[in-house]
Amino acid sequence: MLSLITPLMQIIEWPMRALQRILGPRKLAWVFLLPNLFLFGFFTFLPVILNFFYATTGSDHILLEDRPYVGMRNFDELMNCTSYLDPNSCQIDLFWRAVHNTLWFIVLQVGFMVFFSMTTALILNRKIRARGFFRAVFFFPVLLSPVVVALVWKWILQDQGALNAVLDHFGLQTVNWMLSPTWAFAWSVFISVWFHMGFYTLILLAGLQSIPRDVYEAAAMDAASPWRVFRKITLPLLMPTMVVVLVLSLIKGVQTFDEVYAFTGGGPGSATTLVIQFIYQNGFAGAPRLFGLASAASILVAIVLIALTAVQLWITRRNANG
């Protein structure tokens, strides 16, 4: 592989050298950015912009040119509530149920996700035996498809599932997990942490490599406690990677959908309906497809996310400085 890459890179070097001479080293940054920006602009940014047009148009037509402009109507419908705390008082009650569920969901999911992936990464970074095997074990669930994840957890948690069989074996009270709103919600959080934890563990594991070993050796000389080493050395030096994990786990937490949807379908009732499920069911699985409403909902979610991320970044930055 490397034998292929080296000549390629050397060939690119000629035009890049020439460009550097013309533009100077500072403006060359744009050249480095250009390929990415081109792809990003057309295939990531432009669809997002089009999404705004969908949000301000109505009907169930798919092509933008067929859709009548309705202004802010979709947003108004979504926001039409007597009290935002009581979904029943809203015109689109299911959206607000989903928003409430999602808020709880991210508080729990992001917390557990960061805690467990951090713990796992720290342990996997130690000098342990069969490290490759253990890394693979924690990464395995990430590789599965949501449908399959839901299938196996249903085997475990259904009325006559494996967990109840175990509980029954030990003479404990069995629970119909899927029928209890609280349990179904708790298990949804659990399954989504189980499913995605490996992703963040991997990122943190890479981040831990950026901490030079001699720093730890110095700490060992001072006989610092493990907790102190973690707080004073690991965490601050890991901060750039931590930012990635915090920001991504928040964004992806809000966007959790597939595995929970395949597991509970959002039920019982609407107890585990998350906001992306609402968007999906209205914009795609729905009949007729309420693209406008779905797009408007996605924009509202994005606004909240941007605010939350900004707060998050502000806090991490303050902590990093302080």
Partner: peptide
């Protein structure tokens, strides 16, 4: 640029499938 890149992450991928399809 950085803000735009992170900002697009906020829109769930499911929503942009149809616009993306039309662009592609």
């Amino acid at each position: 640029v950085m803000a735009l890149i992170i900002g697009t992450l906020m829109i769930p991928p499911t929503v942009v499938l149809v616009p993306l399809f039309l662009i592609v």
